[in-house]
Design a protein around this nucleic acid. Structure first.
Length: 754
DNA sequence: GGGGGAAGGACCA
DNA sequence: TTCCTGGTCCTTCCCCC
């Protein structure tokens, strides 16, 4: 039921949001009114409906603000914007590239088609793949009833009582997708898959080669297929579905063959033919000079069809003229509605109102609109760069019990940790996503100074974020219907490189450390530095390895933590001189990884003592190192020191304590890493002083680093388990870190076991 | 005022 | 009775420097 005060006009508006989106192949000419009535009746009064109503109102408010803004635009502003648009238009026009042949291939009703292929009984029935909660796709029979992807199954059933709902089988779809991709690769080895059933290809190079191909290379034989019931049938479709200039011939064995031509349309027709031969599934394709247009074109003759847009400017402009904005990828229901409020429904309108759009929308948005209105898009297909985030989430019936919530949280962290491990990723930002029973979504994120990846590390952060949310609604229970955990801010490729074999490398004289300088110096210094520990971070750096001993020190990505704490200061030390290509020579000093100062000694014993003092805080009175110093490094350190003198050195000691602790912990990571790398080389590792465990502080009766590592692992695990009980996110209003168990960490003996 | 993190939302398949 | 999942990008807000 609509909330009080809901006017009929807002319901009308709401209907546009909830109503059938028939912007999909196979859904033209439906009885929209009848379908929408059923959808509304099924949805009204539900929490989902209420939430949609709320979102609709927010969009309406956005539109109102926009219209108000529009009313205040002066002629002068408009003409200025017009000049700006015109300049940009001519710049873009000059750069227009019509030389590439881009193809967008989309499998027809993919999941449904796979299921139908494997169960021909479904052939003539309306069917959908998914569940009563949600459908992934539907076949063309079902679409005639208004049943489509992203529709709940129970509503679909009301629209089409005879609908057969088949559960999803992603393993099967992945296998078929792999077969399809094998065909794609023959036309563009660098094709860009967008999902299991969709890809972009640049076939320009293929066409170049194809022109010189003999007919035999362009001839494909029709094959017989056998389905899983043992029935054999010819999968050759009527040739009319493959309109071609080339004849259908018979080969020597009497089988039918198809000869394809050399032009783009023929190449794509051949590709679709081969996909169909290989998988018994049909695909549709669009051929155009860029990705944006190819995507629109692939929808033109769906299903089992293709459309080519000529590579000349006028053809592109003509094609764009009457294209509804909603057909363009990237323009969804909200943008469509906002543009609609300005009277813009087609791409030609978009072009006409560009000056207005430049004043009402952000630069990114109106630039995007301008590209669309000119029919411009990317002509360079490149695979996505590095992954930006990884997440897992789960929807369930109402969950209010704390125990269940924390247990699920841990499960999600575990799943995510496994996924991260598969791709050897570690990230610094952990985000908890919660959707309550009213469909309100909240995300709560925390960024750590070190990259994390294990279940315990993720859970340590996620559970604190969850706890905070639970506390916020207390004494009411947190009534959830979805929970998710995401990790982002992955360590960059640079960070992953083993810049330094061990922390000892860092302690070498600066001139010996040119490699790390060259790796890092091109980036702004600040980017590489950890946030001031204890100032904005939640809890003890969970990058403490909590893995089992087998994996504790070998993780490559663990380098990120050590990089942050060991390489960066080095980079820092060299940053001051990085502009000079001349390495500093003749320096008889070592740089302290804690205070970043140069210690005038090359004696490790003396230097060790200095580090110990820095870490234990004994020298605080003399040093007054602050977290800010830790962040900025030596060049700023001195200025701060002067400032400190002026301000009487009043700094937050608690924060400093945290900073030292955090630093110590992150350095422990480095130590672990070093130990492990040395552990692989026993000839080097079995000499040296007795080893003192940096966690329990006890001297171990062994020189064997493998054994010693095992001991440290055990101690660390215990330490972390202890900590997991007491982590609390930082109070963002006061910016103080939560208390965490601090141990005066002395890892000198471990550091210098060379 | 700019940079950057957090939060939320749009959009896609 | 019942409305997904996993990802990217963008905008807005706020804090800090």
């Amino acid at each position: 039921m609509a909330t009080g005060g809901t006017s009929s006009s807002s319901e009308e508006g709401f209907l546009s949001r909830m109503a059938l989106n028939d912007n999909k192949a196979g859904m033209e000419g439906l009885n929209r009114d009848k379908i929408n009535k059923i959808i509304m009746e099924s949805s009204k009064g539900s929490r989902f409906y209420e939430n949609e109503l709320k979102k609709e109102q927010q969009v309406n408010q956005r539109i109102e603000r926009m219209m108000l803004q529009k009313a205040h635009i002066t002629e002068q502003q408009l003409s200025k914007a017009q000049a700006q648009v015109e300049k940009m238009t001519s710049d873009l026009e000059r750069g227009r590239d019509l030389s590439r042949v881009i193809v967008h291939v989309d499998m027809d009703a993919f999941y449904a088609a796979v299921e139908t292929r494997d169960c021909p009984d479904l052939m003539d029935k309306p069917m959908a793949v998914g569940s009563m909660s949600m459908l992934s796709t539907s076949n063309y029979h079902a679409r005639k009833f208004g049943v489509r992807a992203a529709m709940p199954g129970f509503i679909a059933k009301k629209l089409c009582p005879n609908l057969v709902i088949v559960p999803t089988n992603f393993d099967k779809y992945r296998a078929v997708s792999a077969e399809v991709r094998e065909v794609f690769a023959d036309y563009d080895p660098h094709f860009l898959p967008m999902s299991l059933d969709e890809a972009y290809l640049d076939i320009s190079d293929h066409l170049e080669q194809r022109r010189g191909w003999p007919e035999a290379l362009r001839t494909h034989r029709l094959r017989l297929h056998t389905n899983n019931t043992g029935t054999t049938w010819s999968i050759s479709l009527p040739l009319s579905l493959y309109p071609s200039s080339s004849p259908c011939l018979q080969d020597a064995a009497g089988g039918e063959v198809e000869v394809f031509g050399t032009c783009a349309e023929e190449a794509v027709r051949e590709m679709r033919f081969r996909i169909e031969q290989k998988t018994s599934l049909t695909a549709s394709a669009g051929i155009a000079p860029n990705m944006m247009l190819a995507k629109v074109c692939s929808d033109k003759n769906k299903p089992n069809g293709q459309y080519k847009l000529s590579s000349n400017r006028q053809a592109v402009i003509d094609f764009i003229q009457d294209l509804p904005v909603r057909k363009v990828s990237g323009i969804g229901k909200v943008t469509e509605k906002m543009l609609g409020a300005l009277g813009i429904t087609s791409c030609s309108h978009l072009g006409q109102e560009m000056a207005l759009l430049a004043l009402l929308f952000s630069e990114t948005s109106w630039h995007h609109f301008l590209h669309i209105s000119m029919g411009l898009g990317s002509t360079h297909i490149e695979r996505d760069g590095e992954r930006k985030s990884m997440s897992t989430e789960r929807t369930f019936g109402e969950m209010s019990a704390l125990k269940e919530q924390f247990s699920l949280c841990r499960e999600l962290c575990q799943d995510l940790a496994q996924d991260l491990q598969k791709e050897a990723l570690k990230g610094k930002t952990v985000t908890l996503k919660l959707k309550n029973v009213n469909f309100e979504v909240k995300t709560r994120a925390w960024t750590l100074p070190c990259a994390v990846a294990t279940t315990e590390e993720l859970f340590a952060v996620a559970k604190d974020l969850l706890k905070t949310e639970i506390d916020n609604v207390s004494p009411q229970p947190l009534r959830l219907r979805l929970m998710g955990v995401r990790v982002s801010s992955f360590a960059s490729a640079d960070d992953k490189k083993p810049l330094q074999k061990s922390i000892v490398g860092f302690l070498h004289k600066k001139q010996t450390n040119s490699s790390s300088t060259s790796q890092i110096s091109h980036k702004p210094v600040k980017e590489h530095l950890p946030k001031p520990p204890g100032l904005t971070q939640p809890s003890a750096c969970p990058s403490l390895n909590t893995n089992t001993s087998a994996e504790t020190h070998i993780s490559m990505s663990a380098l990120t933590a050590s990089d942050k704490m060991t390489h960066e200061p080095t980079a820092h030390a060299s940053t001051s001189s990085c502009c000079s290509t001349e390495p500093e020579s003749g320096t008889d000093s070592l740089t302290c990884p804690v205070c970043f100062r140069e210690v005038n000694t090359t004696e490790l014993t003396v230097f060790n003592r200095h580090i110990d003092q820095c870490l234990s805080g004994v020298t605080m009175g003399q040093n007054n190192h602050t977290d800010t110093e830790l962040e900025r490094g030596p060049s700023v350190c001195e200025e701060e020191e002067e400032e400190d003198e002026k301000t009487g050195g009043k700094r937050e000691e608690g924060a400093m304590e945290k900073g030292r602790e955090l630093l110590s912990r992150c350095m422990l990571d480095s130590v672990g890493l070093q130990l492990d790398s040395s552990a692989g080389d026993h000839t080097e590792s079995t000499t040296g002083p007795a080893l003192t465990c940096p966690v329990c502080q006890e001297t171990q009766d062994t020189n064997d680093l493998t054994l010693f590592n095992l001991h440290v692992d055990l101690c660390l695990n215990q330490e972390v388990l202890h900590e997991l009980g007491g982590l609390a996110p930082v109070d963002r209003t006061t910016h103080t870190a939560p208390p965490a168990a601090h141990k005066g960490l002395c890892f000198r003996d471990v550091l210098f076991t060379e």
